[in-house]
Design a protein around this nucleic acid. Structure first.
Lengths: 210, 210
DNA sequence: TAGATTGTTAATCGATTAACAATC
DNA sequence: TAGATTGTTAATCGATTAACAATC
């Protein structure tokens, strides 16, 4: 696999390619050219070919791309050909929503445990997964080989909890708290800032109205 | 206000500026230079000045930026100085999480109603907001002057529901369904694709491990 | 072989960074 | 006035698009 750095712009597009390829498989399409795909996805064929060729030559001249093959190759690139053990910290609605979302499991993300500090929530069960006390998290992370922690907690406690899960051995944090987490470089942090998304929507709405 | 198109890269950064300015206000800071802010936010001072000057000269030579003033100007740019009436379609965990998230209301996004097709959920109350039957949505949108609809529903029904809310007069859709919505250009669509975010995390995790 | 379409190089476009004159 | 820092122009860098030779 190539050593040169892939831009985030490319990485952001990969899951979308993956989704479209999935739909093509479902509708029984066996091969597709960059041109046909470009029309469906509303991006240029050139961009599709450039993006894919960052990772290898998955197509064939005169033929195009084999849908199933390309789909499986992108899965490998994204690392979703392997299982990932995940925990959720924060058993509120958002944490429960993620725990309940079975499509993640289909992509190899298995929720092994949910944690909270609220004694009212501890002991509860979400989709068969027990809500445990946050104190028991470090031991659980080690025992169950957890590599991803989703933080669905208020921003006030996010920094501390992030430090704790990192110390326990978690390798990636999916952060829903509205704050930037400063952690050592060997922990991956992926942010989902819902309020920022809503503000972008608001901006575009305001421009339209003008 | 300027007529030239602002790039999405700039728009994506605005909410983050806003958040940092909010924190500065909370900690009693009255003015800040692009240089100080650049250190806190880990972006270049040049970028901050360029971004802001897309919208106007909010600073003063030799002084910097007045934190409160800049904060309020960005609020205006983002359109969050005005109230937005919002509905949520889909009363599952994710819909409930959004309804319960009071911070949105602080930014002027007021959840007026929640809709679902599941009769078990209809009649329920979330944060004092009644869950109504989706059939009653069009009339509600008109009566309550709704301009934003959050779609927290499965992708199978997303396209139809999106068309319905647009027909009812909703001006912007905050889409959580894992599909691209094709709608007329006068409806703003902002996507939150959680599974794509998780795959990006997975990609970065896989690269780290290699 | 001819036609189609990739992989890849080159050209263009846009975004970021650097530099500095304007000015508070 | 001198110092600081913006607003803005110019330079650089990177990403996207176009073009086409390679090849199935």
């Amino acid at each position: 696999m190539n050593e040169r750095e892939i831009s985030t712009a490319v990485i952001r597009r990969l899951p979308r390619y993956y989704r479209y390829l999935e739909e093509l498989i479902d509708s029984g399409v066996e091969r597709i050219s960059s041109n046909e795909l470009s029309e469906r996805m509303k991006v240029t064929a050139s961009q599709i070919r450039q993006d894919l060729n960052n990772f290898g030559g998955f197509g064939q001249q005169g033929y195009g791309y084999n849908v199933k093959y390309l789909h499986s190759e992108i899965a490998k690139i994204l690392g979703i050909d392997k299982k990932h053990n995940m925990i959720i910290i924060g058993a509120g609605n958002l944490g429960q929503a993620i725990a309940n979302y079975s499509a993640f499991e289909k992509r190899g993300f298995v929720v092994k445990g949910i944690f909270d500090i609220n004694p009212k929530l501890v002991g509860m069960t979400v989709r068969g997964i027990e809500v445990m006390n946050l104190e028991d998290m470090p031991e659980f992370v080690k025992r169950e080989n957890i590599d991803i922690a989703a933080l669905t907690i208020p921003k006030t406690s996010a920094a501390d909890v992030a430090a704790d899960v990192a110390a326990a051995g978690v390798k990636a944090i999916w952060n829903f708290a509205h704050t930037d987490l400063a952690l050592s470089d060997d922990v991956v942090v992926e942010n989902v800032h819902l309020s920022e998304s809503l503000m972008q929507l608001s901006y575009r709405l305001a421009r339209k109205e003008k």
